[in-house]
């Protein structure tokens, strides 16, 4: 890390479209914190703002792109990864960052997510998981915990929950991580590693929705919701990745956090370009 890019000299206003502020997110929404962590990671890596392309879908998470002073692309519901695939193939010099939500990426765009993971194209996908479709009125999403009340699960959700990180890892993403918003510096570190990774990196951020989810489920005000994230997480350094499940019996409902998958795989853009070169060469020779 460049010593000049320390936490002391990071000014988030350098990365914001100030004329659009204050932003539209509800009071206490964790998405703002995740946005700070992302921009902080960008700052630490010293990436030029012109070299960032933020592609976002529809939803509260999708609006984050509108507030960042970079190349931003607000796309259709569930399809930011499809747009980003084209963009990353056409412009490999850009840092493509996809900001998506739990409903956006796991339900509506679930297909796009698994195929983006499978291809391992160089981009970073930040999924903000607030367990609900916030913007459209609080419908249940694939990550809504069981027994939770939403507008489409009036007597409590009965559907099992998607583990997005396990899904991404199984689909072939070469970098998968999870972190909570309340540990902002850790989230920043994770996003920095994800941005630095050559290949598809998937980061799930456990965010909170106070207005349409927390209130309905009696989870307290935003400070309580933010702080309760601490009891939901289980740092992966506890060793469950190595088969050591020493703390599993005591905290079976917690989610592992930190870097969960980190492997080297052929990056799809490189493979694609090499393939194109090979074919065009054979055409010329033939």
């Amino acid at each position: 890390m460049d010593s000049s890019n320390s936490a002391d000299s990071f000014n988030i206003r350098d990365y914001l479209r100030l004329e659009m502020f204050p932003h539209f997110l509800c009071p206490g929404c964790g998405h703002g914190i995740a946005m700070r962590a992302l921009l902080w990671a960008v700052y630490e890596l010293d990436i030029d703002k012109d070299k960032i392309a933020i592609v976002s879908g529809i939803g509260c998470s999708g609006r984050i792109g509108a507030y960042v002073d970079a190349n931003t692309f607000h796309t259709t519901h569930g399809r930011p990864l499809a747009y980003a695939t084209g963009l990353a193939l056409a412009r490999p010099d850009l840092h493509v960052i996809v900001i998506t939500g739990d409903g956006d990426s796991l339900a509506i765009g679930g297909n796009h997510l698994i195929h983006a993971c499978r291809r391992n194209l160089n981009m970073t996908c930040m999924m903000l998981n607030n367990e609900v479709y916030g913007m459209t009125g609080g419908q249940a999403s694939p990550t809504t915990s069981e027994t939770r009340y939403t507008t489409t699960s009036q007597s409590g959700s009965i559907e099992p929950v998607f583990d997005a990180c396990a899904l991404a890892s199984a689909a072939g993403a070469s970098f998968v991580g999870r972190e909570v918003t309340v540990h902002t510096p850790n989230l920043k570190d994770l996003l920095r590693d994800a941005l630095d990774h050559n290949g598809f990196s998937f980061v799930e951020v456990l965010s909170d929705c106070t207005e349409v989810f927390g209130r309905k489920n009696n989870l307290g005000e935003s400070p309580e919701m933010i702080l309760s994230q601490k009891s939901k997480m289980r740092p992966s350094s506890y060793g469950s990745a190595n088969g050591n499940i020493v703390d599993e019996p005591f905290r079976p409902t917690t989610l592992p956090t930190g870097i969960l998958t980190h492997k080297e795989r052929a990056e799809y853009g490189d493979t694609y370009r090499a393939h194109v070169e090979k074919i065009s060469g054979s055409v010329k020779n033939g």
Partner: peptide, 22 residues
């Protein structure tokens, strides 16, 4: 300590270091 700065979702708090004093 910057905790409020990090956790403010609205970017309404900034801890500005005075480099000369540091």
């Amino acid at each position: 300590c910057r905790i409020c700065e990090w956790l403010c979702p609205d970017f309404a708090i900034d801890v500005v270091k005075d480099a000369t004093k540091t």
